[in-house]
Amino acid sequence: MFPYRVPLDEWITRLVSIMETRFGGFFEGFSSVVSFLVTVLKDGMLFLHPLLLIVVISAVTWYMAGWRNSIIAFLGLLLTENIGLWVAFVETLALVLTAEILVILFGIPLGIWAARSNRCNAVIRPVLDFMQTMPAFVYLIPAVMFFGLGLVPGVVATFVFALPPLIRLTNLGIRQVPSELVEAADAFGATGMQKLVKVQIPVAKPTILAGVNQSIMLGLSMVVIAAMIGAGGLGEDVLRGIQRLQVGQGFEAGLVVVVLAVILDRITAGFGQRRSYNGPGGAS
């Protein structure tokens, strides 16, 4: 129809290569921080005897989500160890946790900013839409170009994929704090920071934690995709199952992903229902 085709692909490729040369140092630094975090988490967990870690995770689940969930977690983890997927499990857990730490580090402040400034919100929203609707595979290419193959681009892709819901829900949670509560603090002469710390964040906490929960779930769904660029972990076993048409093995690894998802979901959902940050208890 048109004699001219917009060379969008070329532009993007050029942009990526410019970023690669210009910000190479930054990416390298970032990369080493991320890989350090993942390695520490992974080695730390592998250092413990599997049975000990299983007991610890079950205990945390018990504390946060009750004994029923704890039993599910305990049996699921024993099965994981039994079918020889323990190391893959720990690798995946380390990857997801690292990505989640980054998500929380960026997501909550950005969400707060978006809630307090309509202008910021107007800029961030389309970016989030883009991040959420862009097929996840597409992230993998630039991630690989910037960070090479392996764990780090896996973490980055997971991070990009899991960030939007936390920003959105933090933003929503803070905007939904009843205006009278904020007015009450204002009438006392509160500063912006006091309002945020004493009223807005605590009242929005359940919504923010729902965002954390959602982003962890999304992060887990990214695990298999990240394995395509060599992030390892359970995704790799799933992929291998697919490639070799070994239904049983693929299914086993998939099931362990589900176990991990259930445990993380119950634990973080438990957070949202607690009454205060400090200590156990609360009447709920």
């Binding site: 009843p178 009278e180 509560l181 009450a184 009438a187 009242v203 009454r275």
Partner: peptide
């Protein structure tokens, strides 16, 4: 100069 405001829906903090 001002005491706290008192509101129709109480506006007390649920987490405290």
């Amino acid at each position: 100069k001002f005491c706290g405001m008192v509101f129709q829906n109480f506006a007390i903090l649920p987490h405290r």
